[in-house]
Design a protein around this nucleic acid. Structure first.
Lengths: 163, 163
DNA sequence: GATAGTAACTATGATAATCATAGTGACAAG
DNA sequence: CTTGTCACTATGATTATCATAGTTACTATC
């Protein structure tokens, strides 16, 4: 393909974020980072993406100010990736994606009898289901407010990817 | 590139929707459909995508049950594209993208003095800003609840695309 | 009634992004 | 001094994307 058209100068807010998020690799890497999986090899394994793609996208995310690269060990020198505030704010989008999928993306019974990931509000303990505000306490739900519990089937899939 | 890896069988809800949404063309076309722009040529013009890409993606969206193709004229035979309920539910995701961009994706003053798109709650008239629930009446905000008003600069951009 | 639109597409060739696989550099452990 | 770990980089085959032009089936105008 020719160089993909650049949308970063459009004034449309959906277009702007589409430039960043309209890319499978980016979405998967952000999922990993939002789940607190920060190491290169773990991200590559969990997403199934090749190291070259992971490398290229992480560099881009750092350049965009969405993630930052930190040394977590000096000897041997090792780096991992953390979300910035700008990156953490993407939680709302990925959470909306999760909510849509739980409702529309599975065949009946495909996830067992519950959702693929059960989310609980950390501060009040309520199961939030797919709500935008906590049904227990009415608080808005943002980055870090939820504790996710993958279904047994999903957990098994995750284990098989890293094995 | 080789055939892109298929994620549609992953049990992760973010992975599932990433298969659909991790594509610039899809996001832009969904934006058009959510804004009520249903005709092929208009979608192509507003997104800047070539007709072949628009055609391929619309076919996919129809196959996925996100959109449907309807005849709006018999003589001459002409078709356009409408969102299904499954498609309308994607509003939450695009709205979250818009909210993120309004906060993080513009240089200071780039959009004038307000947001790139001002959204007003249809039923109560309140300016919702970038809230998830209406600050005026407390209602949840979904597809069709909001009336968007693009800033003068964005409106000019849209006009220039269709000219 | 021949020419010029209009709208929704399809066809073609050049280019570049992606994948799979293998390899590198710097260090630690046995 | 060989093996292992981790964060990458290198290479070649494949294919999606872009730009541009063309097609089909009508309607409207001259």
């Amino acid at each position: 393909m020719p160089k993909r058209a650049d949308l970063s100068d459009t004034l449309c807010p959906v277009g702007r974020s589409a430039e960043l998020l309209g890319d499978r690799a980016v979405l998967l890497i952000l999922r990993e980072l939002l789940f607190g999986r920060r190491r290169f090899e773990l991200i590559a394994a969990n997403t199934g993406l090749g190291p070259q793609l992971v490398s290229a996208r992480l560099k881009m995310l750092v350049a965009e100010g969405v993630a930052e690269r930190r040394a977590y060990s000096e000897r041997p020198l090792r780096h991992d990736y953390w979300l910035t505030d700008k990156g953490k704010a993407l939680f709302d989008i990925l959470y909306a994606m999760r909510n849509w999928s739980e409702r529309w993306a599975y065949a009946p019974g495909e996830t067992g009898d519950g959702p693929a990931i059960r989310y609980v509000h950390r501060t009040c303990g309520a199961d939030v289901g797919t709500a935008k505000i906590c049904p227990g306490c009415g608080a808005e739900l943002g980055y870090g407010d939820l504790k996710g519990e993958p279904s047994p089937a999903l957990k098994a899939e995750q284990v098989s990817r890293t094995a």
